[in-house]
Structure formats: C-alpha cells, structure tokens
Nucleic acid binder design. Structure first.
Lengths: 219, 219
DNA sequence: TTGTTTCTAACGGTTTTCAGGGATATAAAA
DNA sequence: TTTTATATCCCTGAAAACCGTTAGAAACAA
C-alpha cells in the first residue's frame, strides 16, 4: 500500500513528536520529515518528497503565512494543512486564499489530524469543528462585505526588516525615544515606522502591534 | 511493576494527545487522565490518583500559576512538571517558588517528557536544556539582587475580576474612554485600574499589559 | 530610464497614557 | 471592631502616542 507522506513544521519540538506519535499508529500515513522553523521548511522543499505539509502558522522569523506565500511563487504542488493556536477568522481566510487545504486549531483532538490528512489527501478541504463554527457564524457578514475581504489581503503583507526590528522593540515595551536611541535613528523615523506598522497590520494602536508580535513569535 | 501515574493539563487537545501517544510507548508510565483547563484540574484533584501532574502554564481563565497556588493552599502532594511555550525567567522562578518540580519548554523534544517524569518521580528536579541555559546565564545577577527577587512574588499576584475585565479590553485595543463606556464606569476609574494593573504585573505600559494578556490566554 | 520600495526625517496638532497624588463606599476577614 | 481588599471617582502636568502629510536618498526591478 502506498503511504501518505507527511512533513510536519512547528517550532515546538514536543508538538512535532506528539503528532509523530499519534500518526505512527496509522498504517497508511508516514512522517517523512519535520522542521522547527520556516526557513527549514523552505529548504526542505528542494528535496520535495512529502504529499502533505502540516504547517504551524505561529513560528518565529519566517512564519507559516510567509512560507505559504513563498511556495506559491515557486509553484508548490503539495497540499498544506495549517495548524494554529488561534482560530482567528482573518487568519483562516488568509491561509485559504493563499492555498491551504485544511485548517486545524491546536485545541482539536489528535485523531482530527488523521482525518484531516486523509480528507485533504483525497482532494477535499478540512476544517476542525471550532473553525467550522466560526466560519458559519461570520458567513452572513461576509456576503455584505466582499470588497473589504479582498482588501484584507494586505493584512499579512510581510514587514520590512526595519519594521520588524521596530516592532520587536515596541513589543519589548520600549517607547519611541528609546527605540530611536537603540537603532541610532531619529524619534521621528521610529514614529513613521510605527505608523506604517499600524496601517500595514490593520491594528488600532501599539497594543495591537504587541499582540501581533506575540502571536507571530516575534518576541 | 508499579507504573507512574500521570495527569496532563493543557488547553490544546492536540498536545495532550501527542504527549499521550509519546508516553504510551513507555512501559513504566501510565496516563490516567487529562484536563483542558485550569478549573478541571482543580476538580480532578478530588479524585486524586496521579503521581505526576504535567501542567501547561498558559491556559485561559484559570492559568497554571493559579492552579498551583490553589493546590498549595489545600496541601497538594503530587509532583508537578510545568509546560510552557515561553521560557521566561521570571515565570520559571515563580513556578519553582510555588512548588513545581520540573519545567519543560514546549520547544524541547518529546523524549524529554519521559526523562522529566522519571527524574521528578525519583524526587529530583528537572529542567529542559534551554531553561538550564537561561537559569545559568542569569545566576550571577541573581546573587546581587536577592531582595528584589523576593519582592517579585507579587508578579503573578492574581488580578481582581474587574481588573481582568479591564485588562481584556485593553488587550482588545480599546482605549480608556471606550473601556469606560463598555463597562459603564468613568474614564477615571479605568485609568485607576490600568495603573494598578501596570503596578501589579510589573510592566512598563499598556504594551506590557497586552503581552501579559496574550501569554496568559486572557485574549 | 523610470518607477517602486525602503529607510530616513520632519512638523503641527490632537488625543491618550502615565505618574503622582487624594478620596469615598462597601464588604469581607482578622 | 479594625483592617484589608475591592471598586469607584477625581485632578494635574508631563510625556508619549497618534494622525496626516510631505519629502529626500538609496537600492532595486521592470
């Protein structure tokens, strides 16, 4: 029997080992590799042997969104199941738009992974229950705001290196003046970066930036 | 042979299942139960059958710290291994102070759990590698600031219900005026709560509060 | 070459945060 | 009964964040 080959990417080794252990009792599934960060997943793509990629969205430096976006550019054929601690509706929409086939909240059961792998391998989409609920409850609103949705694409637009630096320092509770000193740039420049960050990430204020930073493992 | 009985508490079912799967291949370890939140762990304590509790610190509503604190009050005898996504030194010191016997970062390997369980069951302390490094690198500073350390106890002092509400709204990017409207209290009152939160949690500003909120699953 | 992105910087004005007090009422605990 | 914890409200002044806009230089791609 041909086994479904799976690659797991998550920054928590313990979760990789856990999923590995869960899948090891499945006869038709074989874990062929794993990565602890986004960079490694991108490298692994060269030796391109898995059918399914299980990809954690919240990884440091290069997160899951960026990995997916990079894959699209180079013509990725494998099917991806996205794992996430946060079942945020914007996130789900985003990853679906850029080509993920399944979405699993980390709070779902281990057996759901098996289901997800089989379903997605069979060519269908898979969502864990909590996410199905969220999708249904926001469906009515969706219809009336289709234009807005399409603009949402910029929500996860990647940050420039400098912006990421500034964001990291903001999330470390430095104020504008302190960040300026730290990076040897003017306070005004830091304010510009902060302003751009707030616009790019579509948040209200520095609190929103801090939360983005934590959820994307920047701090 | 007598098996070591283990209870797992984590708000991510997938991680529970993963750990379960990892431990199932160990002959001297038996998982006797699991909980998805802090409340359940506290209830489970009544039927008090496990030797070791594996406890995630970052759980919604009642977090691991509060669970441990409650257990101490009622004379908890079991040994606890704390699991955490964030290997924050303050956190480690805090959980050790309130009686945890081991500390595992989620980025460590699954086999480390087995090691941790055996070590802690044998009466010794266990720390995963990344945490040992952190502890060593901050050790020298510790000696010169013993007084400060003992004051740190208030770092995780529990918040009042009202403070938690305010904190949640702050982390949802509401400003002071908006929170006042939301809770039907004056803007001044919200400012007082914010001030108290910043003092209690020993952070610099609202960014610090937001990060605390995310890391403690309040948002 | 032209256009785009990134990084840098500035300015004026408004709003909000933050630190520092002080104050009152209520209810529970010691 | 006194103390403690909680929740409420108020004030001031300095600092910081926030908003809109402009703009030059360098690097890079079409």
């Amino acid at each position: 029997m041909k086994k479904i080959k799976v690659h797991i990417a998550d920054d928590h080794q313990i979760l990789i080992d856990g999923i590995y252990a869960v899948l090891s009792s499945e006869e038709n599934i074989e874990v062929v590799g794993s990565s602890l960060n986004g960079e490694d997943v991108l490298k692994w793509f060269a030796s391109n042997e898995a059918d399914i990629l299980i990809l954690d969205i919240n990884m440091p430096n290069v997160d899951g969104i960026e990995v997916l976006q990079s894959f699209i550019k180079i013509g990725f054929q494998q099917k991806t199941i996205v794992l996430s601690s946060y079942d945020d509706i914007k996130l789900i929409k985003e990853v679906l738009k850029i080509g993920a086939k399944g979405f699993l909240a980390k709070k779902c059961a281990g057996e759901n992974i098996v289901e997800a792998i089989n379903t997605v391998y069979g060519g269908k989409q898979y969502f864990s229950e909590s996410i199905q609920d969220k999708l249904l409850s926001t469906f009515s609103k969706e219809v009336s705001s289709m234009e807005q949705t399409s603009q949402d694409g910029s929500f996860f637009s990647s940050l420039t290196p400098r912006e990421t630096e500034v964001l990291r320092l903001i999330a470390q509770q430095f104020n504008t003046k302190e960040i300026g000193t730290e990076l040897h740039i003017s306070k005004n420049t830091v304010e510009t970066h902060r302003k751009n960050l707030i616009n790019k990430l579509k948040v209200k204020n520095v609190v929103g930036l801090a939360i983005y930073a934590v959820k994307n493992n920047i701090v």
